[in-house]
Structure formats: C-alpha cells, structure tokens
Amino acid sequence: MDTTASSGPTFRDATDSDVDALVALIESAYRGDSSRAGWTTEADILEGQRTDPQGVLTVIKSPDSRLVTVERDGAIVACCQLEHRGDHAYFGMFAVSPALQGAGLGKVIIAEAERHAREVWGAEEMHMTVISVREDLIAWYERRGYRRTGRMTPFPYGDEHFGIPQREDLQFELLVKSLM
C-alpha cells in the first residue's frame, strides 16, 4: 500500500450512522480469517462476535464515553473507546483495519487518546484490560508505557456476546499508564 499519497488520520466522535461500519471494522480486526491479515487477531482463542451494533451504539450514546472514529481519505480505518472514570480514563474497543496494522497508525491513535484523557478530562492514568494470553499485544502496550498490574478479571465464559472461547485459561489483565 502506498501511504505517501494518503492524508493523515482525522479523528471525530462516532455517530449512529457509523455503527455498521464500526462493527465491521472491529470484527475484521479481531475475528475470522480477515483478522489474520493483521497481528491483533484473536481468531485462535475466540470465535463468534467481538461486538454487535447494540454494543457499539451503547458506547456512542454513553454520556461519559467517546467512541473515536479514525478516518483516512474519507474511510473509517480505526476506532477506540475512551471512557471518563474520574481520576482515570478507560481505553477500549481499539481496532485498526488489518490492512493498515504494523504501519504506526495504532501508535498515533493511542497517543491522541492519552492526550485527550489528560488535557480534556484531567485524567491521571489510562486503564485498559487485555486478554492475559495475548503476550504480543501486551508487549506492544508495554512499549508504550503501560504496565501489567497482575489484577485479573474472569473472562465471561458462557456469554457469547464476548465470543466463543477456544481455550479454558482466558482472563483479562488490567494494564495502567500514568498520564502525568
């Protein structure tokens, strides 16, 4: 892909009309064969859906949350959720189009999310949860200053809204980064 002809990313809050495109983006980044084009795939550990239109719409409508849509040349290529939780912000629903993964776009998005949380909300920390067996993804976040806390939350086995687990050892680990 020739990125020289491409403009830089633009950031905006998602709207109701973005729901279908965002669901397709998130699913393509994490589930099924299309996700294998990128490195963030969860296809080997989870099958089924990653999210659905109602889940995306809930984030868009939440008063303490932003679903940031990232566009390049007029097309939605990435997204992330930012939720204001008092002295910290939560970062989630992060997806980059598999065709664009590995080119630095994710670094730009997370830096913008951290800037917003710090400068607009006054958040002192950014929190996120990552499936603990995703060592490559956790290492990527560690290179960006996040630290593992060892604080685990059980994976919601039996709730297919989160996918169909292909392993019995899934849990979420809290990662934290100071923004001050």
Rank of each mutant, 00 (worst) to 15 (best):
D2A: 08
T3V: 13
T3F: 10
A5Q: 12
S6Y: 09
S7V: 10
T10H: 15
F11Q: 03
F11C: 00
A14P: 09
A14V: 11
A14Q: 01
T15R: 14
T15P: 01
D16M: 11
S17K: 09
D20E: 15
D20T: 13
A21D: 15
L25P: 04
L25N: 09
L25D: 11
L25M: 09
I26Y: 01
I26T: 11
E27C: 03
S28H: 03
A29K: 10
Y30D: 06
R31W: 08
G32T: 06
S34H: 08
S35H: 02
S35I: 05
S35Y: 01
R36E: 14
R36N: 08
A37R: 13
G38H: 14
W39Q: 08
I45Y: 06
E47M: 06
E47Q: 10
E47A: 15
Q49H: 07
R50T: 00
R50D: 06
Q54K: 08
L57R: 10
L57D: 07
I60R: 14
K61C: 12
P63R: 11
L67H: 03
L67Y: 05
V68A: 03
T69Q: 09
E71S: 13
E71A: 15
E71N: 08
R72K: 11
R72C: 03
R72T: 05
G74V: 02
G74E: 10
V77S: 06
C79A: 11
C79S: 14
L82K: 08
L82R: 10
E83A: 07
H84Q: 13
H84L: 13
D87R: 15
H88Q: 09
H88F: 08
H88Y: 13
A89T: 07
A89S: 08
A89K: 05
A89E: 05
Y90C: 03
G92L: 09
G92H: 04
M93H: 06
F94A: 07
V96I: 05
S97N: 12
L100H: 12
L100P: 04
G102D: 07
G106A: 05
G106D: 00
K107A: 15
V108Q: 15
V108I: 12
V108C: 05
I109G: 02
I109M: 11
I109Q: 03
I109F: 01
A111L: 06
A113Q: 03
E114F: 14
R118S: 04
V120P: 00
W121N: 01
G122M: 10
E124Q: 11
E124H: 12
E125L: 05
H127G: 02
T129M: 01
S132V: 07
V133D: 09
V133K: 01
E135L: 09
D136R: 12
A139G: 03
Y141R: 08
Y141Q: 12
R143H: 15
G145I: 05
Y146E: 09
Y146G: 06
G150N: 08
T153N: 10
F155Y: 13
F155E: 01
P156S: 06
D159T: 03
F162D: 07
F162K: 11
G163L: 00
P165L: 11
Q166P: 04
L170I: 00
L170W: 09
Q171L: 07
Q171C: 09
E173H: 09
V176E: 12
V176P: 03
K177M: 04
S178G: 14
L179T: 01
M180F: 15
